[in-house]
Design a binder for these strands. Structure first.
Length: 500
RNA sequence: GGUUCCGUGGCCGAGUGGCUAGGCUGAGCUCUGCAAAAGCUCCUACAGCGGUUCGAAUCCGCUCGGAACCUCCA
């Protein structure tokens, strides 16, 4: 609990547009909800960025000592292609096209999603509820809104009455709109007769005879509206008012706006204290999205098969690349930027491997270098506590890695470094790399058998060097290099290696 | 048309009213049997035009350029 009090966290709250000090509803505990994927298709890198952003948020809050309950849903029903009456559920459409049961589609893409999350070292949430598992609750809240007069039934469907809600609340509070503007700019849709007002949105939709995903309800067979599931699943597990709600910027309107309206309408309380929105991943300045057809799939990236890529990149290098920018900025995806990131990432990992093997000197020392190491350690916390600024934190980690290399090469002597300062430095570097930022060695580098074999070759090369058999020592070095293993000679004849 | 946001050195990208991140690339030096790695140094930028200020890339206004949202989207 020490760090939790020492480093107060500041977050940019989309609701107010300002950076605020973070105060959870219950001290020491955090409830966080993030809109998960609609599992009708492969997740692309833009989706990954959002889930990475909130992975960092939950990791860091936990690192500080908060107990975090992180809920991220799976949308497996209710997501319409558009808001018109004939809008088709995405899952159902995919199932029809591929001649599958809807749940087959859901299972396949859910597993694919989990696999991608695992590859990027994005930790699973505490609870991962699915919309189809909460139909009963969605019907209940719809009833509640009907009872309160904030919703109305129309031809077997139920709609949220935005104007009625807006009499006592502000619909548009999150996205900076008011309903007059929405009425003027809103697109005219066909078959609007069911709705009393075109700005109203569906809570429950009547299923047409050929619709495959359907559940019985007081209003006949149907299925829940998209916005409702998040309201139900967040408040069910986190309470009527919880701390953090996250998601991509593109969900701000209408999805999150509707969530606020539904939650506030049902309970009389604003559902969320801090709204956090992550910005888009772009390609040539344009948003990466499924509908624009410019999305990258993780497997295309790893294999380097995408037409915009020269080569493949490991998931950790990509993770590092994304963390170099702040989550609230757009990030442009390019071959050159990835290449630069890959090199930078290796630098940090090399230092990570080195410092894990270092032990502090036994004595205390108040040398300048001790003070610097202490300062660097503190900066990691300060930067992350400032709205999860991973870019600034990485800059500090690079400075730390330079000092680690100094310690390794002997430019700085371990005996000049205070034991307490060194221990804090070491724990901070390893902790921020692995636990907070989730950056680790690419997994293929962790093969003990391989490491043993390389160490054997290194021993042989050491012998060759002391014997001045440079032809042999160069051959070992060059041949290893061809295999992607780089040998580095230290000052005292010691050798280390790294994978390329 | 409405609502937001952005425009930083060769490239990518932080950031702040004065102390001027970081990575990649390039040049030089040190170390080295030669390399590599590493360390150090250099190339010092904030779209344009006005304004506020002792002082602005950072605040305000305008212009130009780009993006997101307003419709499914992370």
């Amino acid at each position: 609990m020490k760090q939790l009090e020492q480093y107060p966290v500041f977050v940019t709250n989309s609701l107010t547009g300002t950076k605020e000090i973070f105060k959870p509803v219950t001290p020491g505990f955090v409830g966080m909800y993030v809109c998960g994927p609609t599992v009708y298709n492969d997740v692309h890198l833009g989706n990954v960025r959002t889930f990475l952003t909130f992975d960092i948020v939950s990791r860091y809050l936990r690192f500080l000592g908060y107990k975090v309950r992180y809920v991220r849903n799976i949308t497996d029903v209710g997501h319409l292609e558009n808001d018109a009456d004939e809008g088709e559920d995405k899952i159902a459409k995919k199932a029809r096209l591929e001649q599958l049961e809807p749940m087959e589609v859901v299972k396949h893409y859910t597993e694919d999603f989990h696999e991608v999350m695992r590859q990027f070292n994005i930790l699973p949430p505490s609870i991962e509820p699915s919309a189809t598992g909460h139909i009963v609750e969605q019907i209940e809240i719809t009833k509640k809104l009907l009872d309160k007069g904030l919703a109305y039934e129309s031809n077997g469907s139920v709609y949220f009455n935005v104007r009625k809600y807006n009499q006592k609340n502000h619909y548009g509070i999150l996205s900076g709109r008011n309903i007059e503007e929405l009425v003027e700019s809103g697109r005219e849709l066909d078959n609007q007769d069911e709705k009393r007002d075109k700005i109203d949105f569906a809570l429950w939709k009547k299923a047409s005879p050929h619709h495959i995903m359907r559940w019985p309800s007081p209003w006949g067979d149907g299925f829940p509206g998209w916005h409702l599931e998040c309201t139900v699943m967040s408040t069910k597990y986190l309470g009527d008012t919880f701390d953090i709600h996250g998601g991509g910027m593109d969900l701000k309107f209408p999805h999150h706006e509707c969530e606020i309206a539904q939650g506030t309408g049902a309970t009389g309380k604003a559902p969320v204290n801090y709204w956090l929105h992550s910005n888009m991943l772009t390609v040539n300045g344009q948003k990466m999205s499924k509908s624009l057809g410019n999305s990258f799939l993780p497997r295309e990236l790893f294999a380097g098969t995408h037409k915009l890529l020269d080569k493949g990149y490991g998931p950790m290098a990509v993770r590092f690349f994304m963390l170099q920018s702040h989550y609230s900025s757009t990030l442009d995806f390019s071959n050159e930027a990835l290449q630069a990131a890959e090199k930078g990432f290796k630098k940090l990992v090399n230092a990570l491997v080195l410092i894990k093997k270092m032990e502090p000197a036994p004595a205390a020392s108040d040398s300048e270098i001790s003070k610097e190491l202490t300062r660097l350690s503190r900066e990691c916390y300060l930067n992350m506590s400032d709205d999860f600024n991973t870019a600034k934190t990485l800059a500090v980690l690079f400075e730390m890695s330079a000092r680690i290399n100094d310690l390794q090469s002997g430019n700085i002597k371990l005996s000049d470094v205070d034991k307490v300062a060194f221990t804090e430095f070491k724990e901070t570097y390893i902790g921020f790399m692995e636990e907070v930022l989730g950056l680790q060695e690419e997994k293929e580098q962790n093969d003990e058998t391989l490491k043993g074999a390389i160490n054997l070759l290194i021993d042989l090369r050491k012998k060759a060097r002391t014997d001045k058999n440079f032809a042999l020592s160069d051959k070992i070095r060059d041949d290893l290099k061809k295999l992607g293993i780089q040998v580095k000679d230290g000052k005292d004849g010691e050798m280390t290696y790294s994978f390329e």
